[in-house]
Structures are given as structure tokens and as C-alpha cells.
Design a protein around this nucleic acid. Structure first.
Lengths: 243, 243
DNA sequence: CACGATTTGTGCATAGCTTCACAAACGCCT
DNA sequence: AGGCGTTTGTGAAGCTATGCACAAATCGTG
């Protein structure tokens, strides 16, 4: 497996810096609930839509509708940022966008390396949504010599042995793993060794990483299986009620 | 937007059939906590790995390690299934696999329609992970006449106007939306009208759907933004402690 | 300037999830 | 048979997140 203890990499979990106080401190260092952090990007997306549609201000009610949550949640989340809405009016859209982008650290563009240029890797490399939301794909990496050298847009696929140099040269902050599962741990280890501390893992496996490294997993089959459960449950319930 | 009230489509939420009792009933109809349902697929993946490596039984401790969670969680989750582990020994791997697959409704293969055959759609169409985990891509749909007719593997891209017939003919249970955001709501409406009640949405937007329809959202940019937050936070903390 | 309509910010209750800790159950060995 | 080490299943405690409900603040208008 790996030289690291398994600290439970994954989205559902995540005690974040358990030693620190949740309240007070400079607003910069205040601990934010994970659930809130996960929703801020959704608000941000909604706010950008609203801004595009010419809204200057937005009420928690309206923002909640646009983001698919309840208004109380919005208010509580935003109050965590020490945000300045004005009572009777709502939130200033552009101000709120700035605030959220600041908290999420999106004021500087972050460079992403994509490791594994197969099916999914290709798709992500060509996905415009990254660039438009504050990220730049700064490197494409693979282990297959046949793929190395291939050009995609203005990037050339490089070999994984050049990972460390590439990470340094391109100031890579985030590694996206789109390799088969059996290669993923090795890739993660190398990324971490190269100094990367944020990993988005599409491989269907659990990565063991040392503390301080943040992993988020996206597993498409798992999503489908969860849907399958509800689908299945509907059928059972239907049978249950009709008898 | 849509004719439906926004019920808060999204992963973090989801009150599931609030009216029903959580306990007793036939074990088939017992309500399962959402958090548990979300983890069952992870256990399943780990169990398949273990089975492949020749393990006959597994302790909650070992399974927890393989799935990246704590052992108490595993035990509680599995006890929800009324699962039969044996004390002093652990869980029978193949039995547990069967049990979980049964609960998730994976005993029958489910057919998936993929709407939006762009970058990401192509990648998913070619992704072997679906087939190997109980799903079959039964239809490829697009709105662009230039893409309609294109062949991918043994499937031909069909026009969205044929969606309803295709859903019926191919017994589609799940719709996967990989269109641009502005088309997603329309696609969702059509899917629902055609009888689909489970949607996996890759478009960066909130879908409004009527009650009884299950939506799961996967937004890659959001995952990156959450990572960005932690990255940013690390820097702030470093500055905070060094002064 | 006062009033009414609106909307935020938040204390509090509730619900849901996680973790601990331990008794009960099991297999194995003597 | 009995004792020992192991491991499950679960009650209870603690923690996090959600949602309600309302006081405080703000704007517009007469």
C-alpha cells in the first residue's frame, strides 16, 4: 500500500484542525464548518448567475432558492464569514462574490496537474469549466511512453518521472488523479513527495496520505449505486403499499 | 426555470421519505440513514478487493481500514442491514457482498442514458468502471444534429426528441446529464417526463425536480474550490503561527 | 420623523451522525 | 468443559448540522 497511516481520506469525514477554537481569532483564521465550506462554492456559482442577470442585491431567500437550500442555512453560512448583509435589503452581490472568493482563496489562480491522460483525463483537459472558475491546468502527466509527448491544446503530456520538476516549475497546487485504481496510490505518493497537498481523486480506491494532505474523492460508480438504492427502494415501497 | 418547486436537489441534503419509521418493519423496507447508504458502495468496493485477494472473512477493523473510516462506523452501518457477522470472527466477505448488493438493488443491472455527448460524455461512455459495477450505458443522447448518428462502441447517438421512446425501449432507469448548464434543466424535465426518477447531474447548476425524483450533483469545479479553501487556509495558518 | 414592510443575524430546539465503551457471543486450545 | 482472546452489536454520550422563530436593523413613504 503505502508508507502512510490511513487517515480516512474522503469527503464524508474530515475533522479539520481539531485543536483550534471555532470562534473569535482574526476573522481570517476562524474555523469554518465543513458543511459551510462545501456550500460556499454553490453560493458562488449562484451569485455569478445572479450578477450576470443584472441583480445588484440578493436576499437570503432568493439565494437559497438559486442554490437549492433553505434561507436560514444561507444566512447562517454567510454570517460565519462575518459577512455584511444589510437588513431589509439583502446582500450586495458583487461584494459577496468577492468575500466568498477571498475566503476560498480564489483570488489567485491555482494550477492543477492532471495525472492520467486516458478517457477521463482527456475530457477534463478539455473541460472549460475549470478555467472559468479560477483554475488552470498547468500540466498533463502520464506513465505510458506512447502518450508522453502528445499535445492537447497548448500542453504536452509529460512523463511521471518528471512530476517533481513539473510541479515546481508550474507551481502546481492541486493534483487530479485520473489513473486506474491500481496506479493511484503510487501517483498520490509521488505528488505528495513533490509537495502537493491537495488531491482530487477520481480513481475508485482509498488513498492513504499523511496528515495535512487533503483528499477529495469522486467516484462515479458510487454515485450511480446510491441512485440505484433509491430506485430499488421506490420499487419495494410500491410493492409494500399496494399489498 | 421550470414548472417544479425546487426541493433542494443535491448531495448534502436529502430527507428520505420522512413519514416512515426508521425501525422495525420488514427488513426490506427499513429506512437507512443517508450517511450509511453513501458508505455502502465504499464498503462494497473494499469487499470486492478483499475477495480478490483471497480473504474469506473480514473484521470491522480491517474493512474500516480498507474503506477509510472508523471501525465503529462500519459495525453500525452493517448492523443497520441486520447483517450477520459472527463475533470473534468477523464478516463473511462473499455473504456481505451479496447482502450489500441486494440492499443497493444491484442484483439487477440498471440501464443508464447519457445525455450530452461532449467532452465529458465521451469520456463516460468509454469508462469501463460503469459496466464492471452493475451499470450498462443503454443510450447516448444529444441535441446537436451533427453529433446525432455518431457511433461510440456499439451505441449510436440519438436525438433528444427520441428520448422518451429510447427510455422506454432500453428500460432506462438513470439519466446522466453531461450537457452545458443552460441545457440541463430542459434535459431533466424531459427525462422526468419520460419516467426517469434518478438523475446524476454533472452540469454546474441546481435542478428543480418534483418530489420523488432523486438528483445527485457532481461538480468538478466545486471540488477544486473546496480544496482551494484548505490550501488557502494552510497558508494563512502558517503565517499566523510564524508571527 | 414615525410607521410599516422587509430582511438579516442568531439563540434555541431538534435531528442526525460519530465515537466510545462494554457486554454478549463466538472459536480455539487445553 | 472451561477459560481466553477476539470481535460483534449497541446503548449512551458528544458533536455537528439544520431549521424555526423572533428581535434588531434598514429602507421607503407619507
Amino acid at each position: 500500500m503505502s508508507q502512510f497511516a490511513n487517515d480516512g481520506a474522503g469527503n464524508p469525514d474530515g475533522a479539520v484542525l481539531p485543536g483550534l477554537p471555532r470562534q473569535s481569532l482574526q476573522p481570517e483564521l476562524r474555523e469554518l464548518p465543513d458543511a459551510t465550506v462545501a456550500r460556499l462554492p454553490e453560493y458562488l456559482r449562484a451569485l455569478h448567475d445572479l450578477a450576470q442577470n443584472g441583480h445588484d442585491t440578493v436576499s437570503s431567500e432568493a439565494l437559497a432558492a438559486a442554490a437549492g437550500v433553505k434561507s436560514a442555512k444561507v444566512r447562517k453560512d454567510l454570517s460565519q464569514l462575518g459577512s455584511y448583509g444589510t437588513r431589509g435589503v439583502g446582500y450586495d452581490v458583487t461584494l459577496l462574490i468577492q468575500k466568498i472568493e477571498h475566503v476560498l482563496g480564489l483570488t489567485q489562480r491555482r494550477n492543477v496537474a492532471l495525472i492520467g491522460v486516458g478517457n477521463l483525463g482527456h475530457a477534463l483537459a478539455g473541460y472549460a469549466g475549470f478555467a472559468s472558475r479560477g483554475f488552470r491546468i498547468g500540466a498533463l502527466i502520464d506513465i505510458d511512453p506512447n502518450r508522453v509527448g502528445e499535445k492537447l491544446g497548448d500542453l504536452t503530456v509529460r512523463h511521471i518521472d518528471e512530476l517533481a520538476e513539473t510541479v515546481a516549475a508550474e507551481k502546481i497546487a492541486i493534483g487530479v488523479i485520473t489513473t486506474p485504481a491500481k496506479a493511484a496510490q503510487m501517483v498520490a505518493d509521488r505528488l505528495i513527495e513533490a509537495g502537493v497537498r491537495s488531491i482530487l481523486n477520481f480513481a475508485p480506491c482509498v488513498l492513504a496520505v499523511p496528515p495535512g494532505v487533503e483528499v477529495r474523492n469522486v467516484d462515479l460508480a458510487i454515485e450511480l449505486q446510491i441512485l440505484s438504492f433509491h430506485e430499488h427502494r421506490r420499487v419495494l415501497n410500491a410493492k409494500g403499499t399496494q399489498s
